[in-house]
Nucleic acid binder design. Structure first.
Lengths: 194, 194
DNA sequence: GAAATGAAGATACGATCCGTTTCTTACAGT
DNA sequence: ACTGTAAGAAACGGATCGTATCTTCATTTC
């Protein structure tokens, strides 16, 4: 219309940003492809040429707008490191509308490929690789004896937080975090690695 | 049409049973009110006269088809009791299609009233009241010193199982259960109540 | 610089499904 | 038998997904 036609990365950025804004504004179920297109100043087919479904668009928007800050954590104590790591996780996911993950899980449940992609982003792989370095450093400091323990034990703080996030809404305050770390996670780690 | 018109409880049972069967067959997102009505041998308005939304129908169907067996558990040890309790939980939720809970959460997120109802069924109330008696009995036997500990600690086994169920599908084997009980739950309970 | 290629953007469409409305007809209580 | 309430059938409006069509611009290629 205005003789200005975006292409490539510029257009893609606009779409993912629009999708993210729409998600924040109205939540997953009320986010429509039509509105995302309108917000990006374009039309639906432009979206569908890139992402075949709403679920895949949202997954792409998540990755685009919630980059993993893999910055090293080193507060000097295992407790401090854990609180920092979990806090970042909360801050990161706190920005995701609470209905997004359930929405994605529901929609992709019957599509193994997309569901796998989603699981991969939440599951062991990513999370464990963030926790284990903290343990290793704690061992180096003498706080623990070994960093060898099962993934299931390592995952505990994140599994608990995810459970609370999904069920109780997104708001998790500092008291909840310290409770999960001090009352549950640290004792477990000490038991298994101390 | 055939001159046979059901009423009251009989009809309601047929509807809830049909909803449950439909849920098992095709999962939450593909379950339609139309098909539920057809399966029950009736029509949509009959459903909508009882439950105003799909979400409420499904919640009712869950309650109808997954009765809480509140039968007392007393295996003689806290470990045995916990494994039994968790096992029942798994058997119970293992029959719920994996996409049902996320589907309900997604759809009811913007409807505080229904969402509250759903939370109430999963959260503290129900679950805690099932775990605490086991603790009390363990105290009576001398296995623990007190049954006073935070709800969050008590909930741990169920939160972990829910997390695994949501992310990894419904299949949770006995090894996972005993790992959650022996490596995580019991040590925590002993720490906080021993 | 002109032609060819390919994607942008607008519009409209088919399909599905929710929840509602309307209307007829059977059953229950009096 | 009479009457009111709810069952059941059918059709509708609205939203939204994903697709198809067609024109128009921009980039690439000669």
């Amino acid at each position: 219309m205005a003789g200005l036609r975006r292409r490539g990365e510029e257009l893609e950025d606009a779409l993912l940003t629009a999708a993210w804004a729409e998600l924040l504004d109205v939540g997953y179920p009320r986010m429509t492809m039509e509105n995302v297109a309108a917000r990006a100043g374009t039309s639906k087919p432009v979206i569908y040429r890139r992402w075949p479904t709403k679920a895949k668009l949202v997954i792409a928007a998540l990755a685009h707008n919630l980059p993993l800050e893999d910055a090293d954590i080193d507060t000097g104590t295992l407790r401090g490191d854990l609180i920092e790591l979990v806090g970042r996780g909360i801050k990161r996911f706190g920005r995701v509308p609470g209905d997004t993950m359930p929405g994605l899980i529901t929609e992709t449940f019957r599509e193994p490929e997309v569901f796998e992609e989603l699981r991969g982003r939440l599951r062991t792989g990513e999370i464990i690789e963030h926790i284990r370095p903290l343990l290793t450093r704690a061992v180096a400091r003498g706080e623990l004896r070994t960093d060898q323990c099962s993934d299931r034990v390592l995952r505990v703080p994140f599994d608990l937080l995810r459970s609370e996030t999904l069920l109780y809404g997104v708001m998790i305050d500092d008291a909840a975090i310290t409770a999960i770390i001090d009352d549950i996670t640290l004792p477990l780690y000490r038991l298994h690695c101390g």
